[in-house]
Design a protein around this nucleic acid. Sequence first.
DNA 1: AAAACTTTGTAAATTTTTTTACAAAGTTTT
DNA 2: AAAACTTTGTAAAAAAATTTACAAAGTTTT
Lengths: 411, 411
Amino acid sequence: MKDNILLKKSFDTSNFSGVEMKKFLQKKIMLKHLYIEKALSTPEISKITNLSAPTVISLLNELIKEQIVIEKGTGNSSGGRKPNLFGLNAEQILFLAIDIRNYYTLITIFDINNTPVTEIRKVDVRLVNKIEVMDLIVEESNKLIELSGINKKCLISVGVSFPGLVDSENGINYTYFDIKGGIRAYLEAKFDRPIEIENDARIRALGELKFGLAKGLQNVLVIDVDWGIGLGMILNGKLYRGNSGFAGEFSHINIVEEGLLCACGKRGCLETVASAGALTELAKEELRQGKLSLLNEMTGNDINAVNSELIIQAAIDGDQFAIGLFDKVGKKLGKGIASLVHLYNPEKIIIGGKLSRVNDYLIAPIYQMLNKFCISKVREDVVIEVSTLNENSGIIGAAAFVMESIFNAEN
Amino acid sequence: MKDNILLKKSFDTSNFSGVEMKKFLQKKIMLKHLYIEKALSTPEISKITNLSAPTVISLLNELIKEQIVIEKGTGNSSGGRKPNLFGLNAEQILFLAIDIRNYYTLITIFDINNTPVTEIRKVDVRLVNKIEVMDLIVEESNKLIELSGINKKCLISVGVSFPGLVDSENGINYTYFDIKGGIRAYLEAKFDRPIEIENDARIRALGELKFGLAKGLQNVLVIDVDWGIGLGMILNGKLYRGNSGFAGEFSHINIVEEGLLCACGKRGCLETVASAGALTELAKEELRQGKLSLLNEMTGNDINAVNSELIIQAAIDGDQFAIGLFDKVGKKLGKGIASLVHLYNPEKIIIGGKLSRVNDYLIAPIYQMLNKFCISKVREDVVIEVSTLNENSGIIGAAAFVMESIFNAEN
DNA sequence: AAAACTTTGTAAATTTTTTTACAAAGTTTT
DNA sequence: AAAACTTTGTAAAAAAATTTACAAAGTTTT
């Protein structure tokens, strides 16, 4: 597997001759399309690449000899001989995907078709800013690799998703594990593999783009409403990172003049009025004022036991008080989203995260605010949907991210 | 000039053979780089295109025969024979650029190097939503073409910049001239040429990207503070339009809860507190309250005669009252910009438009607000500068836009 | 079910492109 | 100022890619 054309770091093109470079680039393009389309026929590749059928076949034969491409049976024809299909050799090219979340971490191994080839390992570890946490995750990853029985040489890259201000290009997470040389270099040494790191909100946006409700779309905002509010952006069909990879800090834009103190140190951030934390605080406050709710029964009248999980459950069970809370939080969020709609003119906004589980109770007030605050022409352009990707969106996205970085590499 | 390779609309590639298509694409890439770099040597083109020197020379000779490329003398060498340089044949490829503004319209003809080949014609026409306005502009454009004495066949396209909700792709301005079939089709019939239309804020952003302070940068916001607040965005090195070309409606995001009524029909838009209009209203209000200012002398104590031009002049002349007004308006604007910095993580923000003429009096309060409301890591990433492009940024941008649409065309 | 039409696959001929080799035109070093 | 080195430009040889022609394998029509 060494000298695998997909391994950009170990693949040196600097002393390639003209023809070699040309072939290399042609193969890269072919592999990219084989990745996207899963299986393609010779004539299809010929059309995509503007190469003649004999050239395509000779390149494919080389890739088959290199064990990167395999035959995938025959496809359908609209009146003529059925074509042979070719695709990537899934078993030979594997990725480790790690999704580090606040209260647990998910680890699994994907093949090149983004199909998991092992169980999804859940590690119960609280995310705190200590390198020991990362060491534990590496250890658990290695255990998974051992258990899986895969050929280690086939594992060609690792993708990591975590919260924080992540500079993906330079491999630094400024919020967690901000060690000298950057966390990516640290992990590359530990795993002896190229590593790709990215912020969790952007990873989820990429997951939606590749496998979720944003598939095939160009301009989509993916908003994750949990303890914070994450924003991942697909603009012009590509993930948007900003200059240093800090774009999408929707959670900390100022919404309330001289408002509550936020975890970030500033006052009146959106997060203080429209997140799981804000929802819980609002619930406690109103319950203390004597409002009636299913929550009273659920907690045995212990107001301090109220948490976002319980509020979500109460709303789903039809509790008017809980639904009212979502209305209030949704309206605050909706006002913020109205600004996003004006700035980005997106075709779709996907809402994910814990709070989105109540579905329409959150979406309806958002729509109300869009109607109130948006220019109608721009408002009419956008659809709001609740993410259909489940808990695993993070690791799916992390794997997609590794693939992206391999197939979109200029090199 | 018919069948000019650059004329995407009249150039039909549908029945090209494999080689013809290949050559066509290779030529397009070469022309694109010749446009960007102005002049290139054979070895340089060879490196860029991954084609061998003999191939490059043979393609260049074909383009020279087609009168699209010309020799441009010899370049320098770092120790060896001096290369022949090649470039686009500027005289043969001309564009009409039209910048429609609220109180006047600018028209000129550019060559392919974005150098004007005629005077810049100023037409005093107030922009109102009547097609007669556009007819007048077309008439004036034709006069300019006649007077210039250029070969009409060399004029291959027209670029139009105007305010409004512009869907560039479909050729519609929903705010002005929203006639059946779209204003682009209307103009294409009138001029008998392919037309490109775009919103003025985005045109200016493109102007900054190609010829201004955003040159070579990837993520830049261009904010124009005039009667409204225009926002043009360069994201990932490309102009961002949004789904239907409505992105950048910064002017109408809600800033003040139940604030003043805006021209758009909504309340509390940014425009109502941070624009030339807001500045003037604020000045009048405070003067009525008896505040002292140079403006009293300038207007002979006629408060109703106060306008933004006078306030700008007073500030430049050192009037503390006027400077104070810019501080207030700048802070409102700065708070809005702080949100943009969080969302986009840009490397530069360029402020243009009338109000930017006071330079630091507007920029300083913006910086203050960024320091107050931004996460420091994101704040440190961004520089705010005042545009150096003069009044002509609109037509320069319009010409650049036409070039962009030609050289970035997939076709 | 045979005939007519489509599409894919492949070998040979043709064309295009690259490579090689070397001459031409400079620059730098000694 | 000559020698040594670099880079560009070009013709001929070699290699690669496309085109052409046709066989193979289907589908649709009659």
